[in-house]
Design a protein around this nucleic acid. Sequence first.
DNA 1: CTGTTAGCGCTTTCAA
DNA 2: TTGAAAGCGCTAACAG
Lengths: 337, 337
Amino acid sequence: VRKRVTIQEVAREAGTSITTVSRYLNGRYENMSQETKEKIKKIIEMLDYQPNTLAQGLKGNRSRIVAAVVVNIGYPYCVSLIRAIQDVLTPAGYSLAVCETGGDAERELRVLQSLQAQQVDGLILQTNGDNNEELHKIASRTPVVLVDRTFSIPRVASVVTDNEVASNTLTTHLLQQGYKNVMYVTEEVGQISTRDQRLNGYIAACCARGVEPWICWVNRAHPDTFSHAIDALETKKDARPYAVYTANGLLMKEIYEALIDEGMHIPNLLGIATFDEPDWVNLIRPTLTCIRQPTQETGEWAANEILRRMAVDFVPPVVEVQVLKSTLVYGDSTRLS
Amino acid sequence: VRKRVTIQEVAREAGTSITTVSRYLNGRYENMSQETKEKIKKIIEMLDYQPNTLAQGLKGNRSRIVAAVVVNIGYPYCVSLIRAIQDVLTPAGYSLAVCETGGDAERELRVLQSLQAQQVDGLILQTNGDNNEELHKIASRTPVVLVDRTFSIPRVASVVTDNEVASNTLTTHLLQQGYKNVMYVTEEVGQISTRDQRLNGYIAACCARGVEPWICWVNRAHPDTFSHAIDALETKKDARPYAVYTANGLLMKEIYEALIDEGMHIPNLLGIATFDEPDWVNLIRPTLTCIRQPTQETGEWAANEILRRMAVDFVPPVVEVQVLKSTLVYGDSTRLS
DNA sequence: CTGTTAGCGCTTTCAA
DNA sequence: TTGAAAGCGCTAACAG
């Protein structure tokens, strides 16, 4: 079990003081003889020395770590987001700690606390809004950016999708295609802004065209709630052609599985569409109409905002909530002919 | 911008020395008056104090961080693995740093170096085997466990799927069903043990039944290589019923998209099956036969092995390579009637 | 039962 | 152009 090489040893081998080595490490070559510089360089390579970031961080209370806290690392939204964040942070010399909360308030709190103890330099998170007080405290000394879901917390910025607009657009598209009704399938709305806005967009679009909203509440923890959705469709058969629009990709997955075995005729009697763009939209026939969220830009914006806020000369921004546009991807599942 | 609370302040407020506070933090109450104990407890809560893990780590060169380095955080295999690792590590008081390499050797090297600089206490990785020297060095002072792909590196343990057996089983299943040939679709085998073993299992099963292996090499970076696969199938139409078996889920996704528009009759003229269990296996009709890897157990084993190896009294283990069993999940896509 | 003190590896004045 | 020395927040002998 070899010991790690320290700055001491480098200095000793190079015949200089640790101060000089430290200067070298931090690229402050201004006044340093070419000779010492090269000597240190050689020794560092020889010894395969790497500065201990823990020690470096201890001095200035900086860890050079930014944390991304998401509900579920398996969700395509989160994966794409995390990748985008990485791509911005890594070149900037920061590493990313990825944490999962499962949407659980207590777990989120524990994560937040452990992250603070680790002196993370920045925090990007997708939250249910159950720990806003803690976030407020954290934000007083660490840059915090909310993604996907926004909450009004002093000093905290947010980046979100244009949920309401996109939802309205999709609903309108369905109605324009000729579907007489659109059943909207969603989970409990509660405090999650995203769900709220999507629902609002749906309702607004219905009202605008004089169609009565038809909302079906489900719960992913209770599979039988999905059969209610199917039942509702069966019952209203005389209203066909109608459409089903799910508030997110996970719901569509559940619904779709039940639907195909019912032998519903898509898209002519039943149109289907979803928020999110699951990876299987092009594997099914007809292909699935969906809303592609700007995950990449969301991640980039969040990471850049963190970087901005970590800069010494940071001044509070004009925009507290950044809204990014999503794209309606037309599949064959809503092409009524 | 509030400053962080330190152990100093807690000690001052509590009217004790920092040593006592430190003892309290580390749960060494053996000899400590109930009174001081409660006093400290109160002060800590009042001040919302949290020990600085950087400083704690600096002392013993321990960061209480374990890193998981994977090829792609979007792969279901990796997601499931990471979650399992988290579930073992979190209760043990470690946090997990997740890193992505994209299968790129240089990027992997950079990640490994930055991880060392961060003094990670353990390393779990899925590697292409291009930095085995570096890993060898790392393993001399940090527990290292390889997942998914194994390489023979001193002091490094591995956990892998029973690739060869599973591949053999699946191929045999296809042949037994009555498919006269099985086309095996794979990427370049090279040094990646996983691909090697799956190919071997396939070949062995073919030979055992006197069927000539029919291998189709593709490259996900070059979409046209997939059309070659389709062409090959078209050409051999007289050999039907035959089957296509892909070496991983990503390949099946590509192939399947091309296949369905060709109007091939699955499963009666064409059987399809894949290694891995994509999330859409039950969304398509017929449902897809596949091999479910023991991702959960793999993650658990890896994390536990790291924990084991971090213990002071660690003795080199008997098993250097742990092989875990996967499951053949029967879908309708290989049910020849 | 409690405190003093010497570091952990590094950065950063300040002085030479 | 360089180095000595004082910490950063915490732990762990060692001494009371």
